[in-house]
Amino acid sequence: MDFKAMASNLGIDEADFIELAELLVITSLSDLAALEQGLAQGSKEPIAHAAHSIKGAAGNLGFTDIAAIAAEMETLVGQGEFDSINARADALRQGLDAINMAMGR
């Protein structure tokens, strides 16, 4: 994960980018918790909102893999494929962990 290149791609400083990446991890973990709660309750709306939120934020910062997983989840909600969403939630969590690792945390 080349934060310097990603920051430069957005036209911002690396320090600012790292701050944003950190915020992305915190926010997305919180979204993910809401998503999992939605899965447990079989409630579509919180899942759709959480997936949409992660997709947008990750996409904005250039974390395209995470954004892609979230986008798939958003599509799957409509189809009621809760099991597939569950599997992707794990992948998403791993993606967020990878960002944390890259930041040296």
């Binding site: 911002i12 600012d16 944003l20 992305l24 926010t27 934020a57």
Partner: peptide
């Protein structure tokens, strides 16, 4: 924006 990441990104770019 309801997502703090998006808010922060807009903010830091504009403030600069």
């Amino acid at each position: 924006d309801d997502n703090p990441v998006n808010l922060k990104l807009m903010e830091s770019s504009l403030v600069k």
